[in-house]
Amino acid sequence: MNDNPRFDRLRRVLAQPFIRATLALVIILCLGALFNAEGSFFRWDAHRDMLRHISRYGILACGMTLVIITGGIDLAVGSVLGLVAVTSALFMIHWGWSPLVAVPLCLLVGLACGVTSGTLISRFRVQPFIATLAMMVFARGVAKYISGGRKISQGVETADGFVYLDFPGFFNFLNARILGDNVAVVTLVFLACAVGAGLLLARFRPGRYMYAVGGNEEAARLSGVAVAFTKTLAYAMSGLFAAIAGICQAAQETQGDPEAGGSYELTAIAIVVIGGTNLMGGRGSMALTLVGALTIGYLEKILSLNAVGEAGRLMLTGFIIVAAVLFQRSKR
């Protein structure tokens, strides 16, 4: 049985990870069309807002994809996002620095966190889960230390009383919508990150080495791959993307909240997994992560359009993660 060649060709097409991931997304979209909340699902603002909402998670997922392809995991991205949200708000709202100085410094903070995790993992052979768990706790601590545990916002108490500071133009720009009010700037930032990470994986030597390290570390080493450098690079990129997401976070919330980004790392991992990138490493792609981000984004959007409360949303999201992964595996 099942030797029908036509059936067979269909099966082979369905076996491609990208097709499988897209199919899951299409099913979600069909559900959206069905439960369209009196037509709100067919209006562009619903999609625009969803894309804006998913952007920060998506940016984190870009770095997470690189790390997971090398066979690791980065639990620190949510905390690094929070830390950078604090530093960027501090630099630009409180101290009024130019973004030309503040942004590179913030990126450097994220990069430093990533390089530290990566070095612990690749040079000192700490397990990725442990090393990034430590970084997750540490970065949160630094965020609270710098901010004094308070949100860094426009309102500041001084000796002369309460002062209301200007909101930086750079944050205003990040938080704005362009192209005739149709696309949020942060969505474009997300797309740029996705393209960047995608190019690194598919077009540059270090990207290929990430697949090799995740697929078989020993074989990669014997083939002359600089394994430690490759792994560190993946975590460094993850830290960098977390910093970008952190700046977006501060802009969107108009403040630097030291608690920001809690549990965001889990959403980022969920996006990567729903896309179909293998947690064991060696297999996956940025395109899959993009589809995964859309799947999670639309799922949440459709549920909120239909006035499903947060409790129900969370429970259903849990179900969908399992369903998506089982669905993808059954087609193998």
Binding site: R205, R208, Y209, Y211, A212, G214, G215, N216, E218, A219, A220, L222, S223, G224, V225, N278, G282, R283
Partner: peptide, 20 residues
């Protein structure tokens, strides 16, 4: 264990050590 990366294609395995 040491020779090949099973999850990569034939092409990418052959080129792996010569990528520089």
């Amino acid at each position: 264990r040491e020779g090949l990366v099973p999850s990569m294609s034939v092409i990418h395995n052959i080129s792996l050590a010569a990528l520089p």
